[in-house]
Simulated scan of single mutants.
Amino acid sequence: MQKKPLILVTNDDGITAPGLRTLIHIMNEIGNVVVVAPDSPQSAMGHAITINSTLYSNAVKIDDGPQKEYSCSGTPADCVKLAVNEILERKPDLCVSGINHGSNSSINVIYSGTMSAAVEAGIENIPSIGFSLCDYAIEANFEPVKEYVKTITIAALKNGIPKDTVLNVNFPRLPKEEIRGIKICRQARATWMEEFDKRTNPLGKEYYWLTGKFVNLDKGEDTDEWALAHGYISVVPVQFDLTAHHTIQDLNTWNLND
Rank of each mutant, 00 (worst) to 15 (best):
H230G: 02
I154A: 02
D164H: 14
I179F: 09
S132C: 12
A118F: 05
P202C: 09
T247D: 10
F171R: 05
K213G: 02
T253I: 02
L228R: 02
Q187T: 14
Y232W: 15
A137L: 13
F214W: 07
T191V: 12
D218V: 07
P202M: 12
H246I: 06
G160T: 13
R189Y: 08
G122V: 02
K219F: 01
I126K: 03
K198D: 04
E147V: 10
H230R: 13
V149E: 00
A121L: 06
E147W: 01
W226A: 01
I152L: 11
R186V: 10
V149R: 00
L217H: 07
N255Y: 10
I184K: 13
V215S: 01
V236Q: 04
L133I: 12
L167V: 08
V238R: 07
I138D: 10
N125V: 01
I126F: 05
Q239S: 15
S234H: 04
E221R: 15
T200A: 04
F240S: 03
I184W: 13
Q187P: 00
T200K: 13
N168M: 09
T151C: 03
Q239W: 04
N141D: 15
N255E: 14
T253W: 03
V119H: 00
A140F: 07
F240M: 12
I184L: 09
V166I: 14
A188H: 00
D241G: 04
N201M: 11
K213Q: 10
K198F: 04
K213Y: 04
S128M: 06
W254S: 03
F240G: 00
E206Q: 15
K146A: 05
K219G: 03
I129F: 03
T243M: 07
P237M: 07
T243H: 06
R173S: 14
R189G: 00
K176I: 06
I184N: 08
F196E: 13
S234C: 11
G181S: 09
I161V: 10
P237N: 11
L203I: 11
V236L: 02
I138E: 12
Q187H: 01
T165A: 06
Y208P: 00
L157A: 06
T223F: 01
G231L: 11
F196S: 07
V119C: 05
F240N: 03
H230I: 07
T223I: 02
V169S: 03
W192K: 05
E177T: 11
T211S: 08
V166N: 00
P237I: 06
N255T: 05
E178L: 15
P237G: 08
G204Y: 14
N141A: 03
L242V: 06
T243F: 03
K176A: 15
F171M: 09
D250F: 13
L217E: 13
